[in-house]
Amino acid sequence: MALINRTRHPLRSRSEIIFRNIVIVLLIAFFVLFFVLPIIMALIGSFYQWNPLRLQFNFLGLDNWKKVFTSKLFWSSMWHTVVFALAAVAFRVVLGLAAAHALYSRSIKHKSFYRTLYYLPTITPMVAVAFVWKFIFDPQFGLLNHLLGIDINWLFDGKYALPAIIILTIWKDFGFAMVIFLGSLYSLPKDCYEAAEIDGAGAWQRLVKLTIPLLRPTILFIVIVSLISYFQTYIPVMVLTQGGPGTQTYLVTYMIYEEAFVKYNFGYASALSFVVFLFIAVLTGFSFKISGERSLS
């Protein structure tokens, strides 16, 4: 036994080397072909007038990049994206925490039933769900106006179109936050709560003074993960509003989608996509730091 345990490896048998080499070669080939090469192509392409349908590839220098930063549509898309992301994140966290906290309570039965129910929208396919919501927002026969007894033309009124997309996103995503929060709630130290109860802290006080501070790492985790995904949202826009009315619901990824696959301006779209890339990279940097802290705590 001592002989075997002494050093597990380097690789010993021929079959180990063959197996490893097959896997590694395929793995590297895949990631080079579908990640490294595309990123290099996008970076180079952002300096070109690049149209795949007309097979154009003409050097433009910095024109695409200048266009990014002088484009009104880009800045308004960025602004809409920030508003959309912050609103959706805020509601996702608050509703997710509220649902998790309610579910955590001892007096609630059928916990797993509710958990299953709330998580349901998260797993359903986005395109199909977006269609259902398109009808829910319909001013004539839509469920929302009928239920609330109001008369709002959600998707064609500049004031309500972006909120409509936010509502759909919150509905679809709060269950994910709920499941994560619930898991964290169960792992919180019980003795703190016993001590707080003995000290006469009420339920609200325990939530604000104890639970929320203890859940800080989880809240940060959900905020970052959500921001990353909300910066890349485009399907609800595509199905519900196509950016309209006017340009009121252009989100930045939807704008890139349109430049690339409606207008086939691959060069300009690549330059735009690198701006999103940069944002995501910064957020991911944060998330690695936080998950490091989370696993330590």
């Binding site: 597990r8 490896h9 380097p10 690789l11 180990e16 490893r20 590694i24 793995l27 590297i28 990631f31 579908f34 990640f35 090469l37 595309p38 990123i39 192509m41 996008a42 392409g45 795949p52 990353i228 910066f231 890349q232 485009y234 990824t253 890139i256 989608y257 690339a260 696959f261 691959f266 779209a269 690549s270 996509s273 690198f274 999103v276 890339f277 995501i280 990279a281 991911t284």
Partner: peptide, 29 residues
Amino acid sequence: YRFKGRQLLFTCILLTMMVPGIVTIIPRY
């Protein structure tokens, strides 16, 4: 398995998770 470059390779694979799909989809086309 233990071999040279294993950790580097794994880190690179993880890093690809942060690349937004919209960046790679254009050249992939």
